[in-house]
Design a protein around this nucleic acid. Sequence first.
DNA 1: ATTCGCAAACCGACCGGTCGGTCGGTATGT
DNA 2: ACATACCGACCGACCGGTCGGTTTGCGAAT
Lengths: 224, 224
Amino acid sequence: MAREALIDSRQEILRTAARLFQQRGYDATSMNDVAAALKLSKGGLYHHFQSKDEILFEIMNHAMDLTEERVLGPVRGLANPEERLRTLIRLHIEVVLSPRDREITVMLHENHPLPPVLRKRINTRKKEYVHFLENLIAQVQKEAQRDSQMETHKATPKDAHKKDAHKEIHPTHSVSAGVSPRAAAFALLGMINWIYQWYKPEGALQAQNLVPQFTDLVFGGIFA
Amino acid sequence: MAREALIDSRQEILRTAARLFQQRGYDATSMNDVAAALKLSKGGLYHHFQSKDEILFEIMNHAMDLTEERVLGPVRGLANPEERLRTLIRLHIEVVLSPRDREITVMLHENHPLPPVLRKRINTRKKEYVHFLENLIAQVQKEAQRDSQMETHKATPKDAHKKDAHKEIHPTHSVSAGVSPRAAAFALLGMINWIYQWYKPEGALQAQNLVPQFTDLVFGGIFA
DNA sequence: ATTCGCAAACCGACCGGTCGGTCGGTATGT
DNA sequence: ACATACCGACCGACCGGTCGGTTTGCGAAT
């Protein structure tokens, strides 16, 4: 059957289109450009897709598939909340930086051109991811709070000067369990998703440095 | 003289254009749209600007002026490094969220359409900002390290389990002063600059909540 | 106070070009 | 034979930008 060839050529078109969209931007890339890069005519390209919008939507939808498969999937298999969060940070960074998955960058940058109906579908999937991360952070905080209560009860009674920023890292008996999970989730997503704006593969800040740095920052701030 | 009226109308055009660019995107906004919003004809609009590129460049350049004036300026007047960093976080968030300064959002999102020569001019100014923040973070770390050495020399000798993430918040005698300032700077810029992607003024997460949350996160991680 | 002159502001028709998308027809492979 | 894949010419709309001509505001001259 040609069923497999069909979806194969569709996916190859999506891969090429995603590469061009990432390099030149969605609006600046014409259907002619996409067709030419595939050694196709524009008419031939329209045999596989109905519109430029559909291509962009499929790219973004595939990007969400990728993050669920490469980030959420492996993370769900882990038992320890803190390790889940550490792994999510690492895998999410790797997915954003992966030169093979340009769909992610396109999804991060090109949401405006999508027609409202399609955009809402993508946003729904994005929100699910945010909620997952938000709950995960809340779990990690709760676990850390529980652990700290079983610890030495020696508080740090002095230091009224500038230690108020990290004085409650080990909350003794108070209910403070850290920053709001929602704010933390958005902050984490921001620092990772923003990477594509400045990252240069030849730069001094490489991917393997980035993962521990960002992880430490999330768990302990700039002094970690 | 009509000199003031000239720059006045230019700035009014820039304000309107920035609003439209932010709402619909740069490519999706035609010069006709901009002119119509100003109750002008397209020809009349081209009396004030040579090209659409020039308008975008001026918007971004003005955005950089704004950040230097409203963020860097006030911050430079402060003596204490930690307070400088705290203030920078607050002011930067406020500038990004200010509904009056749409230029910032346009600058954050629309760098692709700029011709290379103009884009480099903007990127140079952006890099200066990053360097400033990078140095500021390094100063804060150094000061914290110095302070911690004057403190009690009681280290935390136990906790080999999961405290390794924030075990060096108070580095006793080691040279570790936290995450690399460069990585921390990019992370901070990411979490703040990404806000425009998800922030809704009517949402639960308001600006006044955001500032302390993000500040705590930067200084102490998610447990702060 | 009126007129004049002149430059800046502005209009609207127009241009070349490109865009997303269409369609009738032709290969191709089974 | 018959779908599927593909071509290439074509369409209407719209894009950024141009240009010749008209309006408008205002200081100087009368």
